[in-house]
Simulated assay, not measured.
Amino acid sequence: MRRIDRLARLAEAGVSIWLDDLSRERLISGNLAELIRDHHVSGVTTNPTIFENAISYGEAYDGRLHELAVDGADPDTAVRELTTTDVREAADLFRGVHHATDGTDGWVSIEVDPRLARDTGATVAEARRLWEAVHRPNVFVKIPATKEGLPAITAVLAEGISVNVTLIFSPDRYRAVVDAFFAGIEQAEANGHYLGRIASVASFFVSRMDTEVDRRLDAIGTDKARSLRGVAAIANARVAFGVFEELFATDRWHALAAAGARPQRPLWASTSVKNPRYPDTRYVDELVVAGAVSTMPEETLFAVADHAHITGDTVSGTAMQAREVFDRLAGVGINLSDVFRVLEDEGVGKFERSWRKLLDSVAVRLVMARE
């Protein structure tokens, strides 16, 4: 029997498949090149936790850490050198994909220092430094969608720097992100930048929504509340896509598109399933829509390849029905505004803790290398 290529089906449905992981080991072993060649992977995202896991526990960095130690590098300098080198080399690996897709895919992301998430000016300055350090056309600088991050997104795009907006949890915040994107592209045009070279994605986090809402439903404890477990995350993403459908049909967007601007693509982040009671491909299967990006850790990628049910578009036109799910959640006592606040604070906090752990780990290894 002929084996079904489920990842090919997903790509044929118009979803870009990006790996949510990067390490020096993946680069030097040829693993990443294999995923591009054989598993339809067309981009890579990173975050502070990914780099903390890769660098703190990976032997592939030992040689370069020794060189940095001899040069007298401090932990911040060493971490920037290690992360920008990985991203630069990954971007070179994806250059063919980037060219073949006319810039739609082949992107690699690197995040600003998460300790700056509440500081607009420092975020803009760090985004510039990262953009210049990596110096590749197919790199996104990741900026969190905090209130302080929104003006930074506009300012960075206005300078012609491509941006991956991360840590988006609520449809209302996503609406503000799109507005920040429009403003940035409008300013970029006024600044004389060629709009076709500027790209952006908006990373909407999925699975963490179910984790937080399910916890609250269990605490409420009624049969009606428990019956709503596992419905919040997909509904939230579908409501957000309704915002995309609305805002990218406006005259404001049409004017930018006519000037050569690329749309800011919706990206489904946090697609690994946290609750073992749920199907392990649900956040991919149920969020299939042309033009979107689905980022997956390798475990989810292989689960999708093995047994996902890719049946076509499962998102377009579902926003109204998804909002009814919001109403039912509110009806049993779920305060969604508070859920979104908690998720953003936890997301920023988790990345900041990972970054601090990475700096501490690198500091120890630099000392050891000098001894």
Rank of each mutant, 00 (worst) to 15 (best):
S316F: 06
A133K: 09
P151L: 04
R353K: 15
S207T: 07
T123M: 12
G160N: 07
R353F: 12
E299M: 11
D38C: 11
S16C: 04
G149R: 01
D210V: 09
S162E: 07
R197S: 15
M1V: 14
S200N: 01
A330Q: 15
I55C: 06
M209K: 06
G291H: 06
E25R: 10
G349V: 09
A237C: 12
T46I: 08
L301Q: 00
G103I: 05
I28R: 15
T104G: 05
I198Q: 01
G333E: 08
S337F: 08
P75V: 08
T311P: 05
D345M: 13
V165T: 08
A305T: 02
F140E: 05
R341D: 11
E81V: 15
V289N: 00
H254V: 13
E324I: 10
I17W: 02
R88T: 10
P279D: 12
W18A: 02
E12N: 12
L93F: 07
H40V: 07
R2C: 06
R365H: 08
V79H: 02
V304I: 11
T166N: 04
R265F: 01
S270T: 10
D119K: 11
G260P: 06
V293M: 04
A133R: 13
R37K: 14
E324Q: 13
F244N: 04
V239H: 04
Y283N: 03
L35M: 14
H135E: 15
E89I: 10
T222P: 03
V339Q: 01
A249C: 13
P297D: 05
A225P: 02
F326C: 05
D71A: 15
A369E: 06
E346N: 13
R136Q: 15
S337P: 08
R37S: 14
G347Q: 01
G192Y: 10
Q187Y: 09
V364I: 14
R95G: 00
W107V: 03
F241S: 01
P75N: 10
H66N: 11
E132N: 11
G30V: 09
A261Q: 05
G72F: 09
I168D: 00
Y174N: 02
A219Y: 09
G230F: 02
E344R: 07
T85N: 10
R215H: 15
L267S: 03
I168S: 01
T85I: 09
R226I: 11
A305M: 01
V367I: 15
K350G: 06
V348R: 01
R118I: 04
E246D: 15
L130I: 13
D113A: 07
R64G: 04
L329H: 04
T250L: 13
F248D: 01
D62L: 14
R328S: 09
L19W: 05
W355S: 03
A237M: 08
G43C: 11
P137G: 06
Y57S: 14
K224G: 08
S337L: 10
H307W: 11
L32R: 02
V156M: 05
P144N: 08
L65S: 07
G230M: 04
W355R: 04
R353I: 13
G14C: 10
R226T: 10
S200A: 07
R215V: 12
T250M: 13
G160H: 09
G43F: 03
N31M: 15
R282F: 09
K357P: 08
I153R: 01
Q264S: 03
I310C: 01
S354Y: 05
R215S: 14
R252Q: 10
V339H: 00
